[in-house]
Design a protein around this nucleic acid. Structure first.
Lengths: 135, 135
DNA sequence: TCAATTTATCATATTATCATGATAAAAGGC
DNA sequence: GCCTTTTATCATGATAATATGATAAATTGA
C-alpha cells in the first residue's frame, strides 16, 4: 500500500513519537533496521516539510516538530507517496469526477475515500496509544 | 493504487467486456492508448491465467474466457499486482495479525479489508453496467 | 502450398525506486 | 582554535517496473 520510502518515514516518525529529545540517525537506523544514509535523507526531507526538527553537532539528532496528537499520517507520507492521487480514477483517467464518471468511478469512490480519510485523519498519537511500537 | 500494468490489464478486460468476438491487440492498443507490445504481453498472461481466450491467425484476437458477471477484478489484477499483500501490516512487519497487533494494525485493518473486498467482490459486469467504457 | 495476418516470445532500452559510499558543513566541548 | 560528533549533500550503483523493437510460431483462406 505504501512505498518502501513512505513506510520508512512512518516507522521513523512513530519511533520518534515514543522517544523524547533528539535521536541520532545511526541509532534509529539500527533500531528500525533501515539503511542509515537512506533514512538520513528521509529524515532530512521530513525536517524540511516541518514534521521533524533537526540539530547538528554533538547533542544533535531528530525529534518531532509537531505534537503527536496534531501530526497526521498524511503529513508524513505525502512527500514520498502522493496518496491524494490514489483517489484518482481507478482506470487512470485524468478527468474523472462525479459528473463525468467512468465505469469504476462510482463504486471505487467509497473505497478511495476510506483510504484517504484514514491517512488524513489518523494521528501519530492515536497509533501510539493503540500499542507499543518497538520495532 | 494499482500499478500501471494492472491498470492496463483492467482497462483491457473492460474493453473486451463490451465487445463481442475476438479483438486484435493492435486495435485495443490504439483504442486504449497502451503500448502495443506491452499490452500484448499483458493479454498473453491474462490468457494463461484463464481470464482471456486467445486465437492466432487471420480471425484471431482476444476475448473474455469467463462471463463478465463471474469475472472479478481480483482475477484480473492478481497476476500483476498482488493486492493480497496490501492487507499486510501497514508498518511492513512480516508477522502482524490480530493477536500480535502493531500500533497501526487495528485501525488499518478495516481500511485494508474495504479495499480487498472491493477487488475480490466486484465483477466486470458490475463495472460495465455503471457506465460505458469507451476509452 | 503459400501468403497474409495474428499472437507468442525474446532481447534490449528506458525510467523510477531503492540503496550505498564518500565528503561537506555545522555545532558543541575541551 | 581545534577536535569530535552529527546532520546535509553529492555521486554513484543496484534493482525492478515500464516500454520498445525484432523475430518466431501458429492459423486462416485462397
Amino acid at each position: 500500500m505504501l512505498s518502501q520510502t513512505a513506510e520508512y518515514a512512518l516507522r521513523a516518525v512513530l519511533y520518534l513519537g515514543e522517544h523524547t529529545g533528539p535521536v541520532r540517525v545511526g541509532d534509529m537506523a539500527q533500531a528500525l533496521q533501515i539503511p542509515r544514509n537512506y533514512l538520513s535523507k528521509i529524515l532530512h526531507l521530513l525536517a524540511r516539510t516541518g514534521v521533524l526538527a533537526s540539530a547538528r553537532g554533538k547533542t544533535g539528532g531528530f525529534q518531532l516538530a509537531v505534537p503527536a496528537d496534531r501530526l497526521r499520517l498524511h503529513h508524513i507520507i505525502a512527500p514520498f507517496d502522493r496518496i491524494d492521487e490514489r483517489r484518482r480514477c481507478l482506470l487512470g483517467r485524468p478527468q474523472c469526477s462525479d459528473r463525468t464518471a467512468c465505469a469504476a468511478h462510482t463504486r471505487w469512490k467509497d473505497v478511495a475515500d476510506t483510504v484517504a480519510s484514514f491517512f488524513r485523519e489518523t494521528t501519530v498519537a492515536e497509533l501510539l496509544s493503540g500499542a507499543e511500537v518497538s520495532v
